[in-house]
């Protein structure tokens, strides 16, 4: 009953609700409205299995730059032009690479800077991943019953002295079906996890087949002719 009177604007006529209560309701309404307008932050979370592949007998230094570690993507609301979703995937990207690389190479050393590699004589190569593009497909925009994530990576492999070995592009795609009562956060998170697994799958199975890398591996006697 109190609520109905509040909605019809007759607060002052209700003896049981004082001015203070009315102010409280007003403030609560404003907070709710402000919350509704702000962007939703989604932190991608997930765990990834170690790939089941034969390790390459190499010691690889890996360098993650700040942009990679703190990678964040902002999805804009098409109608208002405001930020709609802020998707933080850096932590998951890091977890994926830290799981995947030790399964591919015999030894992996995380580097603080690219320059530090030159002082480490036991490092065979330095690997630097970077995210070039990140796209999100939401069911309300695409009219498909799936959440989609597409990521374009640039991978670089160099010798410890900085000499070029290979520079290649990889794409990852993941989708997750829209489910009843499922939150957008969960849908995006699931699709992102599928995309990250997709990257790990194509990286582990395709690494040695990249022409420049294949040639370098042969020169290092890691692969047979």
């Amino acid at each position: 009953m109190k609520m109905i009177q509040l909605i019809t604007g007759k607060v002052s006529k209700v003896p049981k609700i004082g001015k203070l209560t009315a102010i409280k309701y007003s403030l609560a309404s404003i907070i709710v409205l402000l919350t509704a307008c702000s962007a939703t932050t989604i932190n991608i979370e997930g765990s990834f299995p170690a790939p089941l592949v034969q390790k390459l007998p190499l010691t690889v230094g890996v360098y993650y730059d700040e942009a990679f570690i703190n990678h964040s993507f902002i999805e804009i609301n098409d109608n208002t032009g405001d930020d709609q979703y802020i998707i933080n995937s850096g932590a998951s990207q890091l977890e994926l690479f830290n799981t995947m690389l030790p399964a591919v190479f015999e030894q992996v050393v995380q580097l603080d800077s690219l320059e530090s590699a030159s002082s480490m004589s036991d490092i065979d190569a330095v690997f630097v991943p970077a995210i070039e593009e990140f796209q999100v497909g939401l069911p309300q925009k695409t009219r498909l019953n799936v959440y989609e994530i597409w990521v374009k990576y640039n991978m670089r492999l160099a010798q410890s002295n900085g000499d070029y070995i290979a520079d290649w592009v990889m794409t990852a795609y993941g989708k997750s079906p829209e489910e009843t009562f499922q939150s957008v956060d969960a849908g995006i998170n699931d699709a992102a996890n599928v995309a990250l697994r997709d990257l790990a799958a194509s990286f582990t199975l395709g690494f040695s087949n990249i022409p420049e890398i294949n040639e370098w591996l042969r020169s290092q006697n890691v692969m047979q002719e």
């Binding site: 990834f48 299995p49 790939p51 697994r197 790990a200 799958a201 194509s202 582990t204």
Partner: peptide
């Protein structure tokens, strides 16, 4: 799928 990763992923 986890134990056989990455051989039974959608792409592979």
């Amino acid at each position: 799928l986890d134990a056989m990763f990455p051989f039974f992923e959608p792409r592979t």
